[in-house]
């Protein structure tokens, strides 16, 4: 009785896995095809001859190294800054008692329903006045703190026993010392999860960098790729190489840390 159901289930599961992975495998394959190969009928799945010419062209003629640097620099900066800012705030909300704490926290949570697009016009005007349009600062500023990050860390820090903190205080540790030497190490799992979320979110972000980065040399990979794909519509293999270069870093990171990433989403989903 059980065998046919099992076979059917595996067939269906494998079919869906094929559907989810095929476009990505095809992207890699097409990026290695000689120019014009992909534009044939029936569409070839494997290159007739492997070439790295498109990758070479991306680096030599199309400034790819610069976009890679911009994306990496911004993702690392936003991650580092927001981790510090959010962890301090999350800890304070979890373990300090002060007037107005709960209403303030509720206000922040409620503000999550406001889509970030609402802030973009005034933020652009503000940055324009500050001279920060078309600069790294322009992308970093709105990413410095996030309510979601504060929320995640607060939930985690709530589970740290007060007695640990009291003991450190009796030993003569100051507030900042406790945060740095006790709280941060204890919060490591959630910090790692949040770091991955932030890094990937910043790397994949499109609308805001598209607005702020007006000069070609400041583009992030997604912005550069969108531009490239609208200008070189015919050059499929080149665009696929560009897509590989955009996706590969996050995929490699994901492969390395997928357990953290997925369990982070599960935890977030259950706590609501």
């Amino acid at each position: 009785m059980k065998a046919p159901a099992t076979i059917l289930l595996y067939a269906l599961l494998s079919f869906v896995a094929l559907l989810t992975l095929a476009p990505l495998v095809w992207m890699v394959s097409a990026s290695l095809m000689p120019t014009g190969d992909a534009s044939a009928f029936p569409p070839p799945f494997l290159p007739s001859r492997v070439t790295f010419a498109h990758y070479a062209r991306l680096f030599t003629n199309l400034n790819l190294a610069r976009y890679l640097f911009n994306s990496a620099f911004l993702a690392v900066s936003v991650t580092a800054i927001s981790l510090v800012v959010n962890s301090m705030a999350g800890y304070a909300f979890a373990k300090y008692r002060f007037r107005g704490r709960d209403p303030l926290f509720k206000l922040l949570i409620a503000s999550m329903v406001i889509p970030s697009q609402v802030t973009m016009l005034p933020l652009f005007l503000m940055l324009n006045k500050m001279g920060a349009v078309n600069s790294y600062i322009g992308v970093i500023i709105p990413g410095m703190a996030s309510v979601f990050g504060i929320f995640l860390i607060r939930q985690f820090a709530l589970s740290i026993p007060d007695s640990l903190i009291e003991a450190a205080r009796i030993d003569g540790a100051g507030d900042f010392r406790i945060y740095r030497s006790l709280i941060l190490p204890l919060c490591k799992p959630i910090l790692v999860t949040l770091a991955i979320f932030t890094f990937m979110g910043t790397w994949n972000d499109f609308l805001w960098p598209l607005i702020v980065m007006t000069d070609d040399s400041m583009y992030t990979l997604p912005v550069a790729l969108a531009n490239l794909s609208l200008e070189h519509v015919q050059d499929t293999e080149l665009m696929m190489a560009g897509s590989v270069m955009t996706i590969a870093p996050v995929l490699i990171l994901f492969a390395a840390v997928q357990r953290h990433y997925i369990s982070g989403i599960m935890a977030g989903g259950l706590k609501e």
């Binding site: 989810t20 992975l21 476009p23 990505l24 095809w26 992207m27 990937m200 790397w203 994949n204 499109f206 990979l221 997604p222 912005v223 790729l225 969108a226 794909s229 665009m239 696929m240 560009g242 897509s243 955009t246 996706i247 996050v250 995929l251 994901f254 997928q258 990433y261 997925i262």
Partner: peptide, 14 residues
């Protein structure tokens, strides 16, 4: 889960 972590712009190009 893999498509979730990929860059939307690149996916749209594909």
């Amino acid at each position: 889960f893999t498509p979730v972590v990929t860059t939307l712009v690149a996916v749209a190009v594909i």
